[in-house]
């Protein structure tokens, strides 16, 4: 995707109400994450034994936790951790997913069969079990979440992307590229990946949302982010203890997580409409060469 196409896609997303909402939420997330790296209202370790379990007030907008630390500061710092986790998980999912797709498309029959079979067998393993298998020897860490999530989602991704990747792999232009001596890797990167990109991007943005949800669950269970590191899951787990002290404080961390996950899902939907030349007329004739190819693939898919 060249720069001009990206600009068109972004403005198309911005032009819908849901797309605008998702872009705004995601930018806020990014800004808060960057801000928290240099400044938070209170230091995360500034404990204050005289002001534990405080209700929200002007000096502590979201109250304080059991050791007197500021809840808002932890929530802000958590957005940076979650951003890191999501980025790592999405990248790892994309890499493993593409490798699986490549294996399924390979002309080596044994390998492609094996990939399909392995996906079928392992796809039903829950993330929390994979996370436990990793957390027992290595202890809770960010990597446990990243690897456990990527494990499940890359299998899912490969399964969803496969039919379309097969269509492209059987197309005349791939055949012609192969007969001109292009290597399998080159065909994958220059023909197959650009054609499945819309589907891939949508799945990856959904996966980003699910990673955040998984992080909150795993961290609460003590097998995700270590308790000394700020994260949204950590804030949520702290808020559980608030329930008897100040029930309304329970709302905030969960609301942040829900809004961000909704935004990521809406972004995925908006992205799907924006990058599909059939849905988005503005993409059809900007630079003839690339759009015609996607159009062709879309026609094949339609018929």
């Amino acid at each position: 995707m060249n720069r001009r196409r990206s600009a068109i896609v972004l403005t198309s997303i911005w032009s819908t109400a849901t797309g605008r909402f998702s872009l705004i939420v995601m930018s806020c997330w990014l800004l808060v994450a960057l801000l928290s790296l240099v400044w938070t209202p209170y230091s995360l370790w500034a404990t204050d034994g005289f002001h534990v379990w405080q209700s929200p007030s002007w000096s502590h907008p979201l109250g304080t936790d059991g050791s007197g630390a500021d809840v808002l500061s932890w929530l802000m710092a958590g957005s940076a951790t979650n951003l890191l986790i999501v980025l790592l998980a999405v990248i790892l999912t994309a890499i493993c997913g593409l490798l699986l797709v490549a294996a399924m498309l390979s002309s080596h029959l044994g390998l492609s069969q094996l990939a399909v079979v392995v996906i079928d067998a392992l796809i039903s393993l829950p993330t929390v079990l994979v996370a436990l298998i990793l957390a027992v020897p290595f202890g809770p860490s960010i990597m446990v979440i990243v690897v456990a999530c990527s494990f499940g989602y890359s299998l899912n991704l490969a399964r969803i992307v496969r039919p379309q990747a097969m269509l492209v792999a059987r197309s005349a232009y791939v055949e012609s590229a192969l007969s001109n001596g292009a290597s399998a890797g080159r065909v994958l990167m220059t023909h197959i990946v650009p054609n499945i990109l819309p589907l891939l991007l949508v799945q990856l943005s959904m996966c980003a949302g699910t990673v955040i949800l998984a992080e909150s669950g795993l961290t609460y269970l003590g097998i995700g982010v270590p308790s000394s590191v700020a994260s949204w899951g950590h804030s949520l787990a702290t808020s559980v203890k608030f329930i008897n002290v100040y029930p309304l404080a329970v709302i905030w961390p969960g609301l942040v997580v829900t809004v961000v996950v909704v935004a990521l899902n809406l972004f995925g939907d908006a992205l799907r409409d924006a990058v599909d030349p059939l849905e988005n007329p503005r993409l059809r004739n900007p630079s003839p060469a690339p759009s015609e190819k996607t159009q062709e693939a879309a026609d094949v898919r339609e018929s």
Binding site: G254, T258, V262, N265, L266
Partner: peptide, 24 residues
């Protein structure tokens, strides 16, 4: 459907306790 699928289980449980839980 989108909002329902975006709620962390932990938070959903807390909200339900706040709504229907005996005592709180």
């Amino acid at each position: 459907s989108i909002i329902g699928g975006s709620i962390p289980a932990l938070w959903g449980g807390l909200l339900l306790i706040l709504l229907f839980g005996r005592g709180v």
